[in-house]
Design a protein around this nucleic acid. Sequence first.
DNA 1: CTGAAAGCGCTAACAC
DNA 2: GTGTTAGCGCTTTCAG
Lengths: 337, 337
Amino acid sequence: MGITIQNIADLAKVSKGTVSRVINGAPGVGAETRKRILKLIEELDYQPNASAQGLASRRSYNIGVIIPHTGSYSMSTTYWPTLLTAITEKAASQDYNVLLSTARSEEDVDSAYRSILKGKRVDGLIVGAEQFGEKQLAKLLLKDFPFVMVGKSTAFSHYYVDVDNVGGARRMTEYLISLGHRKITMLAGPEILPSVQSRVRGFQEAMTKAQLDPGRVIYTTYQAEDAEKTALQILREDPPTALFVAAADLVLGALEAARKLKIRIPEQLALVTFDDHPFYPYLSPSITAVKQPIHELGRAAVEMLFALMAKKPVEKKEILPVEIIVRGSSQPGDAMK
Amino acid sequence: MGITIQNIADLAKVSKGTVSRVINGAPGVGAETRKRILKLIEELDYQPNASAQGLASRRSYNIGVIIPHTGSYSMSTTYWPTLLTAITEKAASQDYNVLLSTARSEEDVDSAYRSILKGKRVDGLIVGAEQFGEKQLAKLLLKDFPFVMVGKSTAFSHYYVDVDNVGGARRMTEYLISLGHRKITMLAGPEILPSVQSRVRGFQEAMTKAQLDPGRVIYTTYQAEDAEKTALQILREDPPTALFVAAADLVLGALEAARKLKIRIPEQLALVTFDDHPFYPYLSPSITAVKQPIHELGRAAVEMLFALMAKKPVEKKEILPVEIIVRGSSQPGDAMK
DNA sequence: CTGAAAGCGCTAACAC
DNA sequence: GTGTTAGCGCTTTCAG
């Protein structure tokens, strides 16, 4: 059936060992011999059997990625798909493939963990931090298995890459203050999430620094209905002049709430958010957002992982800067154009 | 280091062969023995080494997926991420993992093809049809390698799943006609793509059936700038009363063109599109669209692939029905709400 | 119902 | 520089 290293060796009149050296770019093969073997490999379109290589060398040349299940349900952010693309691309540049698992529930996380790690299918792992339970994390740490998290974990301190949540929230808040807003409310995700905590911190730092009331923070879940209900509550009971929607999953809910209460944005309420989206320029009003460098984040994760796998010294974390994109939803002047 | 089948065998006082049978759920093991072995496996958290299994059994329990690179550049559709999720989920339900490759250019396709297929890393392949060149396809066919395409290929006739492009376009056109539109233009993607051809066909069928002028079709590329330029041209030179934007990648360009020409939607122009998006309800106006069953498509692809891998008889194609979602962009009455 | 043994295709250590 | 050889951990006949 398939052509093997032995076939190549026979045809080249050398031993398997020599062919193996050529395949792996190892030294100790004569230039002539090497050329001859390479030619044969090319001609026969020979591809070494990955299982055999893996078994013998204990390396799979795969990395695993565990991210949340991104069905059509919650595609209000391009975060995970974009991240995944960046990871895959960067991995490919180092001849690594990506083995994917998506997790919808706590349970899924565990099965994803098992299936992807099962039998050394991967040499390293990139994991959406919020996706990971303490049990699995502990196991990985125990085994000294190379992995990096995207986003800070709730549980452990480990190698991770993240965006500057604190700085982004702070700067966005400062921007709102500079527009004259004094009463600002933050609609935030679940309080236990580190990303949420960071964004809240940035928000409060800016408010405090401006000697304003520390600002009201209302937590909610990432469920669309919850977000809307909470937003309705905020806007009905104690409406601020600016609403900082601290995550993409909450944006549509907030917009819907404003629409229902016939609150016009930005005239009656400035609305800004964290995490940009290609559609934001086309919503009406267009949405002001903190833009995260998602591609860079993915690349950084892969680089960190490879360094870890190579047992090179690595910084425990890498925090990437974000950008404020000002659009109509925060600027009364522009909204009418 | 890792715990092996031999360890289990020793502890259970049986041979490797028996343990292997248990692992694979093969018959011919006494109930007692089986139970004892399973208990040991559980206790020791034993996971068979995938490479060794792969080498011995010639199966990897991975399927490969090659889809276009979906960076932040073109995230105006949730098609690929959603499809990927559906595939991964369905595969996981059968204990298969997904090995991912994304391709940005023609060249990438080839390297993706090589790297993913390299050395039997996968037992089957799901491929975004438009992503695949004839050379690679021919090779796969030649090797009799199990693969299914998502979408119809330009090149060959092979197993594929797709949505009902013809029917969707036809029904959407009929809907526009029922609203009283007589002059309808379709802004379509590259003419060589089968999906584009099908949508054009559905459009023209409906126009002809209604005894209308067959309708104008203008082709463009999926580049945002091209789409906008082409839309501008249509709307400036010979504006229809309804514009059928036949792909998601063209929508933002069309909207931008209308905005620049100060053409109000839906009052002066009805705009509808193919492929729904979670943001469409929130654009202003909200967008009427043909909704594709992307999750089902992904599941169907996996099912077809597994049938192929099992050498079961399979229909050469499976076409899934689509749905028309009516929103503001096609209904003057609603647009003001 | 279970054991023994021959590979699967490759790597890597050790000879020469 | 190149060949030889012993595994890597599992599956799968073939005996018994």
